[in-house]
Design a protein around this nucleic acid. Structure first.
Lengths: 194, 194
DNA sequence: GACGATACGGGGCGCTCGCCCCGCTTGTCG
DNA sequence: CGACAAGCGGGGCGAGCGCCCCGTATCGTC
């Protein structure tokens, strides 16, 4: 096999790598706090770098959004995999659902900001979101096996319910949030069960 | 009582009134299709008026958003009141829930666009949203009375569930939408029922 | 320690969009 | 029907923001 099919990309210089991480971290935080409309200058300021540096690592604002989104999906994936290795993971399904809701909140506005700019979110995050879906499918299967979850629920349904729970929780007073979140997740339980 | 406490505002000239309606209709449509970020010029173009005209009737973009939002809430209110006068309105609750979901979709992005601009949505829409809430409370009470809905659900919960259903429906393929919407609304039903 | 390559900073350009202004048109009323 | 007020159109200004550029600083290597 020859090397020129995969043009060896040289590793980043140490400071470049460090700055890239800083920008990513600052962007993650800024997007979470202020939403996807936050100016790039603000992100640069938080990261303690110049605007040019942000632009060098992420040629467009969308590419930065995309990178942050992929990072969040990877965090979620790690979480799901951790849940899968736990004993009795089927029984812990609803605890896990609550955790997912927290992560998903951050994810969503990024995803639709990208969508609005004509970026195909599905293909941009294909690798990680495929793995995530597979891991979720396994978790769901186990929960259904032990009768915790209705048997006619698909992974897509699960995803939709997480999204629904996020929306519902944001729509009520904070002290009602846990009850309402649970209310939504109850839609997953077999009817007549509890 | 004297008149100068309420300085009689002269009625709008006929063409002004017509243009105001056109702008409002164009804005409603444009916001629904393109989201709240649509430029005012685009709205003016759709309405067939100049940009200055839009600005005269609605001094800021937020005031236009607000006017459209109030209009949508009024439509929803009319819908709820219609449902209340129907015979057996308790039993039709879940049909009605589906209708609400459709209206709410349009409402939500406007509301949080206003929120992002520091507008207090609650007080801006106080009159109509108070009436809406009261009407919904009555509808909910009847549905609970005939056992269609869990007795521990509040109006705020109902609102949250509508929001949740909207989010869920948007998160799945169109052909799955009815099933997923129903899944969410099932959270309102007494457990062990149906 | 010196030299070439790589990365940084931040000023600046161009575009978009909300808002204003002013010369002209149209409706209203005696 | 005529005069005056009310309303209209659209060009233009200023602010905000994404993106680019280039002189300077820093890193990696021999």
């Amino acid at each position: 096999m020859n090397a020129d099919t995969a043009p060896v990309e040289r590793p980043l210089r140490a400071d470049a790598r460090r700055n890239r991480e800083r920008v990513l971290a600052a962007a993650d935080e800024a997007f979470a706090l202020e939403g996807p409309a936050v100016p790039l200058d603000e992100i640069a300021r938080r990261a303690g770098v110049g605007a040019g540096t942000v632009h060098r690592h992420f040629p467009t604002k969308e590419s930065l959004l995309e990178a942050v989104l992929v990072g969040r999906l990877e965090t979620m994936l790690a979480e799901v995999r951790a849940a899968l290795t736990a004993p009795d993971s089927g029984y812990l399904f609803f605890d896990f659902f609550r955790t997912m809701t927290t992560y998903a909140r951050n994810k969503m506005d990024l995803a639709d900001a990208l969508g609005r700019h004509g970026i195909d979110v599905i293909s941009a995050t294909r690798t990680v979101s495929t793995s995530l879906k597979a891991a979720l499918a396994e978790l769901l299967r186990r929960a259904q096996e032990v009768g915790e979850v209705r048997s006619d629920i698909t992974v897509d349904d699960l995803h939709a319910l997480v999204v629904a729970a996020v929306a519902a929780v944001q729509a009520v007073a904070p002290e009602e949030a846990p009850r309402v979140g649970a209310l939504v997740s109850d839609a997953l339980r077999p009817r007549g069960g509890r």
